[in-house]
């Protein structure tokens, strides 16, 4: 009994409520006339779209930089890659690889600068990260208007200047992963490529965290004094983690775009950090502890709620409260993580 309580405590009450809520949704769904298999397809699709952005939280949490509220910076590198790839005009799967290649240098440079900045503000990372994200989104909004892009798929038709707010990835890398290696069993369709793509990067991160550098990074996050004593260059480890997070953010948004079908510019990336942050927290991470399992569980739970609540609610009470519920649940989860006594002083 005590052990059960212990496990329950470790699991955390909010997480338990969310899990039960999701299970309840799946149980109610057939009675509300919603096909369970279609729901599962939807949840898995969203999982494939979003999981890498959630994965982008992991390196920074490990090195003690806290939750990466500065994810928009990574997203912006991804957007730069995406727009450049479309600008070159090469269609098909190659464009996806190009987008990844183009976004990488941006992610490394931006991540490096962002990491250097965060090294100078130890202790206040999360707040500053939030505002670094916001300012970079606002700055890039100006840039999207004045950068000399010329591809007719992206530029406003009537002025010939400035990028559109949303750009379709149709013809470039739309569903490039979603439709490859997909398994169809009745209405259930699982996109293996998307999941493998995530699994590949999740494995790389997992393996990295078990290398010498990776353990050093974890040491920096969990016990900086000890790390310093054993001769680890703290600032370098932190910068490295930030670069990794930023790059994963860039990859994440590209993966998101191929599933969603649109590149969202301007204010699009503004609040994209929040769902990722709350997903990893729902998955059981805390401000200074996270692993790949947290990412997987968290993304499934979060996306499950996001996709299931509207349809079930709508068919049951004809009122779409889902958006409001989502705001309360996801932000409440972040708040819960921030106010837990067990979190480090950061």
């Amino acid at each position: 009994m005590d052990r059960a309580m212990e496990i329950l405590k470790g699991f955390g009450l909010p997480r338990l409520i969310i899990t039960l809520f999701l299970v309840a949704l799946f149980i109610i769904a057939p009675f509300a006339g919603i096909s369970v298999t279609a729901s599962i397809t939807d949840v898995l699709g969203r999982f494939g779209q979003n999981a890498i952005m959630v994965l982008a939280m992991v390196p920074m949490i490990h090195s003690g930089c806290g939750l990466n509220f500065g994810l928009p910076l990574g997203i912006i590198s991804g957007l730069l890659g995406a727009t450049l790839a479309i600008e070159t005009g090469i269609h098909g799967p190659v464009s996806f690889i190009l987008a990844i290649l183009y976004s990488t240098p941006f992610a490394i440079i931006l991540g490096w600068g962002y990491g250097k900045l965060l090294n100078r503000v130890k202790g206040g990372e999360m707040m500053i990260a939030t505002y670094v994200g916001f300012s970079s989104v606002a700055f890039m909004s100006i840039m999207w208007l004045i950068l000399p892009y010329s591809s007719p798929t992206m530029v406003w038709g009537y002025t010939g200047q400035g990028l559109r707010t949303t750009i379709s990835t149709e013809g470039f890398y739309y569903h490039i992963l979603r439709d490859t290696l997909s398994i169809n069993i009745g209405h259930l369709s699982i996109s293996l490529a998307e999941i493998l793509f995530f699994a590949f990067f999740a494995f790389i991160i997992w393996a990295f965290l078990h290398t010498k550098t990776g353990t050093a990074m974890t040491a920096v996050g969990s016990n900086p004094v000890f790390a310093r004593a054993s001769g680890i260059n703290i600032d370098r480890q932190r910068t490295l983690s930030v670069i990794m997070s930023t790059w994963l953010g860039a990859l994440g948004i590209l993966c998101y775009q191929q599933g969603y079908g649109f590149v969202q510019l301007y204010q699009g990336p503004m609040y994209m950090a929040m769902p990722a942050v709350s997903a990893i927290l729902i998955g059981g991470a805390s401000v200074n502890k996270a692993n790949i399992t947290n990412v997987i569980i968290g993304t499934i739970l979060y996306q499950g709620i996001v996709s299931m609540t509207p349809s079930v609610m709508n068919s049951l009470i004809h009122t779409d409260m889902s958006e409001v519920l989502r705001i309360i649940v996801s932000n409440g989860m972040i708040l819960y993580a921030l106010t837990r006594k067990t979190g480090a002083s950061r």
């Binding site: 202790g123 206040g124 705001i327 409440g332 972040i334 708040l335 106010t339 950061r346």
Partner: peptide
């Protein structure tokens, strides 16, 4: 020690409650 980010998240959270 992290009042600002917390108060920031509170405002987001409460925004949901307000909308409800």
């Amino acid at each position: 020690g992290r009042e600002m980010i917390t108060s920031y998240m509170i405002s987001f959270f409460m925004n949901g409650v307000y909308q409800l």
